[in-house]
């Protein structure tokens, strides 16, 4: 970041007000998460007689263990695993098929190339939410309800990643491919030896974005996983609320909410640079 001149920057009281404003913002962002965390460390009794405490209690280990091992409909550990499979499947699956097709579209001339490109391009325009009913029927007809492939495949069918890799491949100098040809590299050797290693950063950035996209899916798993054992954690939370007037078991629900947040938050904060890069690039 460039050195900023002091000219327009605030000092003294102004500086403190700036910090104060930001801290209020941070607190606003954090407050719901703090409450959820507190709720995940106390007994249900403390919650259902409001107001609930503001500081964490001593039930943390019990609540989390209970959620992970027993849960309400299914052990949360299992749901975490399902979410992980789904998020990894979507991220890796999408990256793999997109790399291949972007490579083909950029580096080859073949019949219907433009047609393929436009077909793929069209998919950018339609989120899964718009075509849920027929997509559900397709998945049901394939017998893929309550299966990982049913969770993953329909969400892999969009072309954002193909489009991004195409853009990136176009910026790779032509001479590199020529040099590789002179060196005797076959197309797939060029792909694996040169193009793939050069795309590492882009792949990683996209992985972060897609992992979070996959992890946070709600509507689709809600539709196709009727078996609690196949629930993902993000959709499983809602299933923990009792129907009717019963009291919800808040500590378990809140522990599950926290658990649902942890993996994507680790990915975002841990790979902040890649995440920001991926975000900016996927919106270009």
């Amino acid at each position: 970041m460039a050195e900023r001149s002091g000219m327009v920057e605030k000092r003294g009281l102004g500086l403190w007000l700036t910090h104060l404003g930001l801290i209020i913002g941070v607190l606003f962002i954090f407050f719901p998460i703090w409450l959820a965390f507190v709720a995940s460390t106390v007994e249900n009794q403390d919650i259902i007689r409001p107001p609930m405490p503001v500081w964490p209690g001593d039930q943390m280990i019990e609540n989390y263990t209970n959620a992970l091992v027993a849960g309400i409909n299914a052990p949360v550990a299992l749901m975490l695993f399902n979410s992980l499979v789904m998020a990894l499947g979507i991220a890796l699956g999408k990256i793999a098929i997109s790399l291949l097709s972007a490579f083909a579209i950029v580096y080859f001339r073949f019949p219907f190339r433009q047609t393929f490109f436009w077909l793929i391009f069209l998919t950018l325009m339609l989120p899964v939410e718009v075509r849920i009913v027929p997509t559900y029927e397709v998945v049901a007809n394939f017998g893929m309800l309550n299966s990982y492939s049913g969770l993953i495949l329909p969400l892999v069918a969009s072309a954002t990643a193909t489009f991004l890799f195409r853009q990136f491949f176009l910026t790779v100098p032509d001479e590199l491919a020529e040099a590789a040809r002179v060196d005797g590299a076959r197309p797939m050797q060029f792909f694996f030896d040169i193009l793939l290693p050069m795309s590492r950063t882009n792949i990683a950035a996209l992985f972060v974005i897609l992992f979070i996209y996959g992890w946070n899916q709600y509507l689709w798993p809600l539709l196709i996983t009727t078996d609690p054992e196949m629930n993902t954690i993000v959709m499983g939370i809602k299933q923990m609320f009792p129907s009717g007037d019963d009291f919800a078991h808040w500590p378990t629900i809140m522990a599950t909410s926290i658990l649902a947040m942890v993996p994507p938050v680790i990915v975002v904060v841990g790979m902040q640079k890649l995440f920001i890069r991926g975000l900016v690039e996927s919106e270009k």
Binding site: E175, A179, V182, M198, R200
Partner: peptide, 11 residues
Amino acid sequence: MVFQNYALYPH
């Protein structure tokens, strides 16, 4: 062949 921008494999 030696290329104008060298075309070295950056990685």
